[in-house]
Design a protein around this nucleic acid. Structure first.
Lengths: 161, 161
DNA sequence: GTTGAAAATGCATCCTC
DNA sequence: GAGGATGCATTTTCAAC
């Protein structure tokens, strides 16, 4: 379940459509890619079984949920060893503001994407949940002015690269 | 379509479930939250109409698609003015490697999350698509070792905050 | 082995209360 | 917010290439 998977042009078209809107019916999807509904269902199930499609989730508007202030937190954890890192990650993911966490190369070890209710909430998150911990050496905070989603993710062979 | 929206506890439970897996049937969803299917469909449609739920997308495994090397690119654009910024964003979003772009506060103006086929592809992206442009003053590249998705995003009232 | 067609089950959806 | 009726999607089976 880790290597690359062979995909036909029909698979690519299916992936493109489902990444834009997975609410399309199997019938519509089949018509869009030009195959029979039964065949189409088979293809989609195969993409799920091979792990190419990992899930199907509703996306929400953070501002509408009362979390209008998004930010990225760059966190340096010292010493950078598993016994400290693992509980730190767990603690981070338990915070309701945290949308995603990344372990990066570079001077800052972790990058956390958060959605907060206010500047006060963001400050509390940084001071009480991060810098208050011994292993957190430094936190840099950058607000998100605006964000854009990229197009559907496809294999390199799909377009000239 | 910009302010916060009032949500009942049933709505919150619906949002929690659909963010984890939007493939559940309306019947299953209704049973899980304890209301009739017709009522449940009404609630979900209202969440869509009010813009709380913005979409429903399939998520894919970048490595399975032949893009095993993910990175964050920190890009400084100078001068930082709209006539240069807007085409830059457009150019960035047109790259097949780009998963998301963020406009941030701080010394680095833009953050791009990319999924590349190889170190060579990443180098080409940085040198040919970014630093080759006049308005790009600087690019810092950080590889992603690992990433974690946060839990479902919910309003602050859902948990003590 | 893979695709296309058809039939039956079960669900989404709409209307009414 | 719930119940019932209708139409349709899904899914299984079978046939064809």
């Amino acid at each position: 379940m880790s290597g690359s998977v062979e995909l036909s042009t029909v698979d690519l078209e299916i992936l493109r459509i489902l990444q834009n809107d997975s609410r399309v019916t199997n019938k519509e999807l089949a018509a869009a890619v030009g195959i029979a509904p039964s065949t189409c269902l088979d293809r989609v199930n195969r993409l799920r079984a091979t792990g190419v499609i990992t899930g199907q989730r509703a996306t929400v508007d953070a501002a509408k949920l009362g979390r209008p202030l998004e930010a990225f937190l760059f966190v340096q954890v010292r010493p950078h060893r598993r016994p400290l890192v693992d509980p730190f990650i767990e603690h981070l993911l338990a915070q309701p503001e945290v949308r995603a966490v990344y372990h990066l190369t570079g001077p800052d070890d972790f990058l956390a994407h958060v959605a907060t209710t206010s500047a006060g909430d963001l400050q509390r998150l940084v001071l009480d949940e991060l810098t208050a911990r011994d292993e957190v050496a430094r936190v840099h905070t950058n607000l998100v002015f605006q964000h854009w989603a990229g197009g559907p993710l496809l294999p390199p062979t799909a377009g000239a690269e």
